[in-house]
Every structure is written in structure tokens, then in C-alpha cells.
Design a protein around this nucleic acid. Structure first.
Length: 353
DNA sequence: AAATCGGGGAG
DNA sequence: CTCCCAGATTT
């Protein structure tokens, strides 16, 4: 039972938004020149990097990946460890593993060309509902309904939807489907996202500048929308990390398990991260390696669902061969390893403490 | 449906 | 400090 005004919004949004986009579109590295179709590889790479990640953060990573792997086939031929190394610092490392899997699938099953439908894209690793729709619309001009966090907020306000997220998602998606135009669907999606990033921002929206203000139902309560369900508090976990240096100056690194937190990334051998935590080197699981340690400070780091406090310990050991999953790394080469940000903090503490 | 999975920038 | 970001996958 959609009211008359809802129909009006669906009918008018694109025609109001696209002229605004033609004037105010942000110039981003992965966007093509106006009227030209972008390279699907560029669209895919940027969309995966942009999952839960800001435009400012992605910029340099996108350039590095494209310089090193100019085509999806180049990326498919890369070593996974090299992909993880280039991804280090960007977070959500399952994205990097799925990126590599997806590149291989595109190279092997599709001859290096991305499929051009939402359904086929959805079958690929690391491509979910949002990314499939975004690639289909932006790279292939398909009228797919694209809904990300920005578009959720814009649509919530446009229709003054007071049901909290995520319960409101199905209703939001129906509205986005109704608004998405048959012509320039990719530009429409990008325009909605630009609007959310620059005008219809979280908190106090800049309604005075909005091209949709004349049809916006929620402009008077924009600051209170979208409502959201409360989030759980973050507990603190603790543990210890060990900087183990050999007489030639190399440091011991260990690769973490393929799945789970920081999956496939490198670490300085550390204990499990638990509520109470352990300071004992024996709890790192490194058997048969003897070393004396002295305290070298502590670091704090926050992950998505917990805070971490790690004590850092520094010691010497002279073992020619590395334990399982481990290798000795020259200190000068640490920058070229797949070390996540938390482990770079550990390295900094060890070297200054 | 809920939990897991990073990191940084803005307020 | 909290919130949010061009979400996907697993449980």
C-alpha cells in the first residue's frame, strides 16, 4: 500500500539526482570519463577494497595493485602471499584471499573477462549482493539495485523510515529497486553514494545543498535517521607477543592459520588472546626454541569486536632452521611482509623498547 | 538472525 | 570515547 507521495519519490529521484551528479561527481581513480564504460577489473578491484573502507584509505592501495597487476589475469597468476603483502594494513583479510580466488576463477573459467550479470557475479568469491549489483550497474550498465551504507541512509531519510536498521533493510531495498532507472543505473548508484558521502552525511545532513530536498519526506528529522539497534560492548582480550632475534639480525615470523582473525597473515609469535591472557613463551606453541626474554613495552589495538592489549617481549635465539609455519626475516625486509597493523605496532614497540 | 572479521578518520 | 565506512561469509 504505497502512498501517492512514495510513488512520486520513486519517479522523480533519478531525474533530480543525475543532473546534480553530472555537475558534482567526485573524481575518483577508479571512475571512467563521463559517458565511457570503466574497465570491469578496475570496478571490481575498487569495490572489494571499498567494502567497509573509506575512499581516502583505498586510494593508494588501488594504485599499488593496478601498477603491480594491470589485468585480472596478472592478479590470478600472482602468489597469494604477495597479494596479502600488498593488502597488509587494509584490513578484513578474507577480502584479499577471496580477491585472489576470484581472479583465478575469472581467468580460468571466464577467459579473463568478468561475467556481466548480477547472478553470475554473485557466484564469485568475495562478491555479495552489494558488489554484484555495483559491478553489474557501473561496469555493464545493468539496471541493478545497488544498496550500500550510504544508500541505506539516503533512502531512509528520503522515505522517513523510522524502523531501525537492520530490520528496515528489506523495505529499503524495495524502495531502491523502485527508484533505480533503466538508463544510467551505474551513474544513479554512484550519485546516491556521492550524495550520502557529501550531503546526506551521518548526523547533521546538509539539506540546504541537497538536490532531493523538494521530495524528501525526512528532511525535518534527518539527524535522527537512520535509527539503529544498539551494539554490543567490546570486551578486552590480552596476550603476549615475542620478538625473537637471531645473531645475524633476522627476526622470527609465523604465519597465522588460513581462516579466522588475520587469516593467512604474518605475526610475531604470540600467545592466544584471551580475557586473562598469558605472558609465558611456552604458550606460543613454539616448541624446542629456547630464549631469554626481557619486557619491551606493550601495545593496544582495537578490532571490530574486541580490544587487545599485548605485552611485547624481546629475546635472542640461535636456531638455523625455523619452527613449523615460521621463517627468519631480516629486519630490513619486515616492510615487505604480510604484517597486519597490530603486528607493525608490536615491531615498533620491540625496536624502541 | 547473529557473530565474525580491520583499520582509520570524523565528530 | 563512539560512530561509520561502496559488506561478505560463517555459524
Amino acid at each position: 500500500m504505497s502512498s501517492r507521495s512514495e510513488t512520486d519519490i520513486a519517479d522523480k529521484t533519478a531525474s533530480l539526482l543525475l543532473p546534480w551528479y553530472d555537475r558534482h561527481a567526485r573524481r575518483l581513480p577508479w571512475r571512467s570519463l563521463p559517458g565511457k564504460r570503466p574497465d570491469p577489473y578496475h570496478v571490481w578491484l575498487s569495490e572489494v577494497m571499498l567494502q567497509q573502507t573509506t575512499v581516502a584509505t583505498v586510494g593508494s592501495y588501488f594504485a599499488k595493485f593496478l601498477a603491480r597487476w594491470p589485468t585480472v589475469s596478472d592478479l590470478a597468476a600472482a602468489e597469494l602471499d604477495d597479494v596479502l603483502t600488498e593488502w597488509a594494513g587494509l584490513g578484513y583479510y578474507a577480502r584479499a584471499r577471496n580477491l585472489h580466488k576470484c581472479a583465478k576463477r575469472v581467468a580460468d573459467d571466464f577467459g579473463g573477462r568478468f561475467p556481466d550479470t548480477e547472478d553470475a557475479l554473485l557466484d564469485l568469491p568475495g562478491i555479495g549482493r552489494y558488489t554484484a549489483a555495483a559491478i553489474a550497474a557501473i561496469a555493464f550498465d545493468r539496471p541493478a539495485a545497488v544498496m550500500d551504507g550510504n544508500i541505506e541512509r539516503v533512502t531512509t531519510r528520503l522515505y522517513a523510515i523510522e524502523t531501525p536498521l537492520p530490520d528496515s533493510k528489506p523495505a529499503l531495498y524495495k524502495r531502491v529497486v523502485a527508484m533505480t532507472p533503466g538508463k544510467r543505473p551505474g551513474d544513479f548508484a554512484q550519485a546516491m553514494m556521492d550524495l550520502g558521502a557529501t550531503i546526506c552525511v551521518p548526523g547533521k545532513a546538509k539539506c540546504m545543498l541537497c538536490p532531493l530536498v523538494q521530495i524528501c519526506t525526512g528532511k525535518d528529522i534527518a539527524e535522527t535517521l537512520p535509527r539503529k539497534k544498539p551494539k554490543a560492548a567490546k570486551p578486552t582480550r590480552r596476550g603476549a607477543a615475542f620478538w625473537i632475534e637471531r645473531s645475524d639480525g633476522a627476526v622470527l615470523l609465523r604465519r597465522r592459520p588460513e581462516s579466522g582473525l588475520l587469516g593467512g597473515m604474518m605475526e610475531f609469535p604470540s600467545t592466544d588472546w584471551t580475557e586473562h591472557g598469558s605472558e609465558r613463551f611456552e604458550d606460543t606453541g613454539l616448541a624446542g626454541l629456547s630464549a631469554d626474554f626481557r619486557p619491551a613495552g606493550a601495545i593496544r589495538h582495537t578490532f571490530t569486536h574486541f580490544h587487545l592489549e599485548l605485552s611485547v617481549h624481546r629475546g635472542q635465539a640461535d636456531h638455523k632452521d625455523a619452527p613449523p609455519d615460521c621463517h627468519w626475516c631480516p629486519i630490513d625486509a619486515l616492510g615487505d611482509r604480510a604484517l597486519p597493523t597490530v603486528m607493525r605496532k608490536v615491531a615498533k614497540a620491540a625496536l624502541s623498547g
